[in-house]
């Protein structure tokens, strides 16, 4: 099986796709020192590694590839508002309306997003930020939430249009609704409509107006949760993470992974969303994109403005952005 990031020995030279990647990357000067400190390397080995990192960084810069530096684990910020992100390299990803598949996005409200990334050699954290005047964190009839996604090719040839039959992509999807589920509680009817009333829910426990999932533990009370009972991942009333992992082989093929190791967090502050996506470089899952220290890969970004009716294919997205992980 081919992989998303190329091994260092295969990917040291310039590649055509790297030329289309926008922006040059800057590296944290502290990275080298931290790596040395973490590994307790002797002065000679440390110098050797530093030179290797610097060589990769310069080559990445020459190729127009976004360089993801390596820092010690404690220095990898999971909080998207962590000040450490300010000194991490960044790239501006241009976004445009999705107009390839039905239904297209009729109006663009986001033109770009800022992407940053840091790794520790075993994990990588992506930080995505984009402007949004107001957070939309819940859903209802005709109401949608903000969301974002990163996609990685599982095979190097996958088109940015969510892959194709032979070249699947691996997607990390965050939704503001799920963040609210995790930060507060599962968003229930009374959270949307505080003054609503219903006389009865069969087999529910506890006092009215009843809360999902606590008052619906009796399996008989879950008979009307058809999508949940069918195992639909969007209907998970016990959600613990705001990030979902999915695979796709083209439009309309999005499928959730039953098992997921990715996590993340989204925070809206001062007119912008700031998200972190956290995942290990390597997993045992053949559906996952895999990464190597010193390897190159590509990442795609998508953003949904729920307040403007963005949902599903009605989204903003960008072409592939090439990146290289620090050796």
């Amino acid at each position: 099986m081919s992989t998303a990031t190329t091994r260092p020995e295969q990917g040291s030279g310039p590649r055509p796709w790297a030329l289309v990647a926008g922006g040059a990357a800057a590296v944290l000067l502290v990275a080298f020192a931290l790596i040395v400190a973490e590994r307790g390397l002797d002065r000679g080995a440390g110098r050797e590694l530093a030179e290797l990192v610097e060589r990769h960084r310069l080559q990445a810069e020459t190729d127009g590839v976004f360089f993801v530096p390596r820092v010690e684990r404690a220095a990898v910020p999971v909080d998207p508002l962590d000040p450490a992100w300010e000194s991490a390299p960044s790239i501006i990803v241009k976004l445009s309306r999705q107009v390839d598949a039905m239904p297209i996005l009729e109006r663009a409200t986001v033109s770009s997003a800022e992407l940053r990334a840091l790794g520790d050699g075993e994990w990588v954290v992506w930080r995505l930020s984009w402007p949004d005047e107001s957070p939309d964190m819940n859903v209802d009839s005709g109401r949608f939430c903000d969301a974002a996604a990163l996609q990685f090719p599982v095979s190097g040839e996958a088109p940015h249009t969510m892959g194709d039959d032979r070249n699947p992509v691996h997607i990390l999807h965050w939704k503001a609704l799920w963040q609210k589920d995790v930060d507060e509680h599962f968003q229930d009817v009374q959270d949307l409509h505080p003054n609503y009333w219903a006389d009865l829910y069969w087999f529910a426990d506890g006092p009215a107006p009843y809360r999902v999932p606590d008052d619906f533990s009796d399996p008989r009370s879950q008979q009307w949760f058809a999508a949940f009972s069918a195992g639909n991942p969007v209907s998970d009333i016990y959600r613990t993470r705001p990030v979902e992992e999915l695979s796709a082989t083209g439009f309309g093929s999005l499928t959730s992974h039953r098992e997921s190791v990715s996590d993340g967090r989204g925070v809206w502050r001062d007119g912008s969303w700031h998200l972190s996506f956290v995942r290990p470089l390597r997993t045992e899952d053949p559906l996952d994109a895999q990464f190597w220290r010193g390897g190159r890969g590509t990442v795609g970004v998508a953003v949904w403005n729920g307040g403007d009716g963005n949902v599903g294919a009605r989204k903003h997205w960008g072409f592939w952005t090439a990146f290289e992980l620090s050796p």
Binding site: P103, V139, D140, S141, G142, F144, L177, Q187, D188, V189, L192, V212, F225, A226, A227, F228, S229, A230, G231, N232, V234, S235, I237, L254, V311, G312, A313
Partner: peptide, 29 residues
């Protein structure tokens, strides 16, 4: 019910408005 992701495109398209969005399932019914 396993596959729907609650985009509500069906709600918008049905001329009779006989598909509905369920806020607990976050899917259409």
């Amino acid at each position: 019910q396993e596959r729907c992701r609650g985009y509500q495109e069906c709600v918008r398209a049905c001329p009779y408005k006989k598909t509905f969005f369920n806020v607990i399932s976050r899917a259409s019914e």
